[in-house]
Design a protein around this nucleic acid. Structure first.
Lengths: 152, 152
DNA sequence: ATGACTGCAAATGTTTTGCAGGTTT
DNA sequence: AAACCTGCAAAACATTTGCAGTCAT
């Protein structure tokens, strides 16, 4: 559940990030940030662009792409690949760590975490001398309701 | 370790696949298949195209892409995303199941499997009512030798 | 005033598709 | 002959970049 307060916090994080780099807060960036934060889930650049255009038709596609890069740098957005051929971005701040259960039929995606798996991943990495910095785990299959339809 | 015998088996699988669909085995397809099977690892379409061109400069890029689709259908190749922005294909036949340890610095990739993780994945999926059909798990970090350089 | 930001259009890079000609059955 | 396959070039996408004008500081 996303609250206005949390959005405000993320907006502050973004402003601090660009200030640190000597960049600027603009009307367009505020709009894109607000819409991205309001929309939970996994947005493609094109979907975000569409939502932004609905609110402010003058914003260009390139600005959305540039903003996605900035939000990524600020650790507010993370790029993920959900296997549908599109690049997608999810919220990162306050969503430190999670994997995905993805329905191949309806596209429904559930975010999950399993501490036991996490620690086994670390264990396996260190067995090979690797130092982990990130990981992505996506489980594909059928969600309960699509499974039911399948069985008919 | 890949043997000539295994390649022959995979070639037969491919031939059976296209026969089942009424397609045909051609000189170009044989060349692309042979080169793909000989090359372990994670090939991008462009890399495969380059290797094919080295052996037979007349083969077109489109034929390589079409062949990747066929090998995928025949369960000989699997598309994976290793986070470098390129699409990549790895051998699927006889490599039923594995995850990746990927070095973010040198690109080195190790294939790993952990039965305990596999079963926890199943357990987590069923907790949410999901029926799994596939999954991808990629662990990103630094390999031992890049870690050593980093520490200097 | 300076330097960052914008939208647009052009460029880039990847993958797909239409097509005319060639090949296999 | 019918259906498939080929290479090429064009098209279709997704994303990035150059640029001239605009805006934030």
């Amino acid at each position: 559940m996303k609250t206005a307060a949390a959005d405000k916090k993320e907006r502050r994080i973004f402003e601090e990030h660009i200030a640190r780099r000597g960049y600027r807060m603009t009307r367009q960036r505020a709009i894109i940030l607000e819409i991205f934060l309001k929309k939970e889930g996994h947005l493609s650049p094109e979907e975000l662009y569409g939502l932004v255009r609905a609110k402010e038709p003058t914003v260009g596609r390139a600005t959305v792409y540039r903003m996605l890069r900035l939000m990524n740098e600020a650790d507010l957005a993370r790029k993920v690949d959900l296997g549908d051929g599109l690049s997608r971005y999810e919220h990162k701040y306050g969503h430190a760590h999670h994997d995905h259960l993805i329905c191949l039929r309806c596209g429904k995606t559930i975010e999950v975490v399993d501490e036991e798996i996490e620690s086994l991943q670390e264990k396996m990495a260190s067995k090979h001398g690797f130092t982990l910095t990130a990981h992505e785990m996506d489980l594909f299959g059928l969600c309960p309701s699509c499974k039911k339809k399948e069985d008919k």
